[in-house]
Design a protein around this nucleic acid. Sequence first.
DNA 1: TAGGGGAACTTGTACAAACAAGCGAGCACC
DNA 2: GGTGCTCGCTTGTTTGTACAAGTTCCCCTA
Lengths: 248, 248
Amino acid sequence: MVARYELIADELRGEILSGVHPVGSQLPSESELAARHGAARGTVRQAVAVLAAEGLVGSRQGARRIVLGTARSQSFAELHSFAEWARANGYRYGGQVIAQRRRPPTPAEAARLGSGEVLDVLRLRTLEDEPVLLERTAYAEWIAGAVEKLPPGCGSVTEALYESAGLVFAYGEHLIDAVPASTRDARLLGVRRGSPLLRQRRVTTTHEGRAVECSDDRYRAGSVAFSIRNSIGANPLVRHAGDLRFGA
Amino acid sequence: MVARYELIADELRGEILSGVHPVGSQLPSESELAARHGAARGTVRQAVAVLAAEGLVGSRQGARRIVLGTARSQSFAELHSFAEWARANGYRYGGQVIAQRRRPPTPAEAARLGSGEVLDVLRLRTLEDEPVLLERTAYAEWIAGAVEKLPPGCGSVTEALYESAGLVFAYGEHLIDAVPASTRDARLLGVRRGSPLLRQRRVTTTHEGRAVECSDDRYRAGSVAFSIRNSIGANPLVRHAGDLRFGA
DNA sequence: TAGGGGAACTTGTACAAACAAGCGAGCACC
DNA sequence: GGTGCTCGCTTGTTTGTACAAGTTCCCCTA
């Protein structure tokens, strides 16, 4: 069952992408959209709230909504999973486990994953046959077994864990900064030591709020960038000073 | 006039921050909250939607909402303005104009700011008396005059432009990646050439959707990081491959 | 012609009601 | 003892109504 407001949002999004409502133009008023779709105004408001959350339209009281852009936010899965993102964008991709072992958690990991041993996995991911991402992931003990059963060349870990263990990643927290490549980073990614890497540290949890993994992902400079839209009303991205979080 | 749902959201947020509802615990049901505040269920839903957008709570149909974390997103102003962010977090900060001149726009700038000349400003910002950020901003012609009137040591450009020209930044698009420091970057920021910098390119627009500035901000590695919370339902951050946007 | 006033329009907030859909616990049955 | 099912609770979706608050544009006036 797809919600009605989702259908209306999809139609509006399509009209924006296809140029019916160009960037900078005004959207039809809520009453007009409601009449056109035979829906209540509240339903239409939910639909445009979706578009506002995606950063496609902006609004202020009293004035018609305006179109801000056409780039669409991908789904959570596409941000979370390298494979799903690459596939959705039509890139050729791959992955290979470089090292894998159980070890005691660092204090920072223990605070999030619990005090049991973690499964530490180092993966190298490729995009268009070029190595672009080095993934250091610590999995919580309760999921470690399922991760160990995955084949070393597994393309999509997220997908494989869903199929084998029914695991669904639902919430994520991400911390983005820049770091120099270590000797090992440099060798695996094919760059010079000390050259810039874009680092994304993340903690992922299930629906129930149970932490699944802590990860330290390092992208080769120039290979990927993160983008975000915000507005004076909605602002999900936060700036932090230094290494205040995720421990040292 | 503060909206009722904002008050309820503030109270709930306070209860989460103060530990009344610890991380991982369940929030009271909507009906209970509605009864407690003497409000309709829809109003309570708006309140918890605010917290969900901030990444503090998660929800799924049928089960009670759970608390995901306690870190709160700052306001749009704090993401947009280095000064407001630094002040809100109690840091000592400063800024100095290094160079300023009018020039024709690059093609990428012209597409966003219009074809008129842009005002190119290079600013060095300090945090705790350390240089941490190099800001290269191209202002649109219509606002260039007001920017030129600002003192070179102006701490908060955003604030100054609001007071002098009534300008309000309302929407922003940000693209985050890592780049090596150029010779000039390195000298001004006090790092070695080629060392990692965290780059944030952004385009900012007013309420009406009129573009104000394009900026290329480079942070010294280790000085700041960006963080974001997302969920399977709401996902504002997007990953891009290579330099697909903002021109070359 | 420039400015003020106001009317019409549009979005924001709030309430009430109803049904759908999913979750979890407890109960009955095998 | 374990399995499956049902029932109550909770969140999700939708409609309808009313008023508040801000914007836009026209018209009238000085």
